[in-house]
Amino acid sequence: MSNVNQPGSDAAQSSAAEHTDTQASKTPVNVLIVGVGGQGVIMVSKVLATLCQQQGYQVKQSEVHGMAKRGGSVFSHVRFGEHVYSPTIPAGEADVLVALEWAEGLRWLSYLKPDTGILIADTQQIVPPFACRDRKHGAAMGYARETVADIAGQVTNCFAANAGQLADGLGNAKAANTLLLGMLSTALDFQEDTWRKVISQMVPPKTVDINMEAFSQGRDWVERFDPANVPHTEERPRPGQATPHEVHLELPEINRAWCKSCDICVKFCPERCLILDQDQKAVLSRPELCTLCRLCERLCPDFAIALNYKE
């Protein structure tokens, strides 16, 4: 696939460039910035919005607060042009999607303009506990399974980088977002130095140099981007593709004579499949729910529960 932006080269007139040129005069340019609470989605969109305002455009930047700090999905719509009415971007109309986290990028992919939309993604994975809930033996993690190569096959203009790792190489992983801004800068028609000016104003003074370096590296990354050669998402067991684990264990066996009715096992069973019966002894009331996690066996103060290996 072709590179989108090599300043000064013929590629400068590639699909994305033509797209923004022709559209911006009438229809606003739509940039959707997404990530996880705490990553800096709002900061990145503020840089872009400030830049657009300084260039004399009408800008609307829309976000939702409240859950932002609580590890949830966060998004910010930035629209700029001569006239901007709606504060939000309709599905299928984002010119650029900037994802600070890989699975969040996938979530919003349907907002990209078909064919011409540009995806700029950090391959960083923030795995929520929600993706680690399946207690069945050999269960795979519930994290999104698509790799950069999978997405590059579907989205023509897909640019991904492990921005945190690259920025860490420069000496400060916190400059990852500036690296992404460097990548974004190649997708929009603003002078490189206006970007640098705005970013310099908005980062802590001591970090200007390293942020400028990260910005340059983001631009370079796009220039020599090769989807086949991305240090993409770490390999995760894919849903439905994990090797089935051979279960060697039998269901918990409860020694009624040793059980003293403390009900620790009942209260700590994650699946709630144990109860105290009429004699106040622990019994496995719903064996079909048991995942053989052995928690009851480990917690029983009287060694009254055992999960035996199959013969």
Partner: peptide
């Protein structure tokens, strides 16, 4: 793509 739930 199969989006992943990310509740707060």
């Amino acid at each position: 793509v199969q989006p992943m739930a990310r509740p707060p």
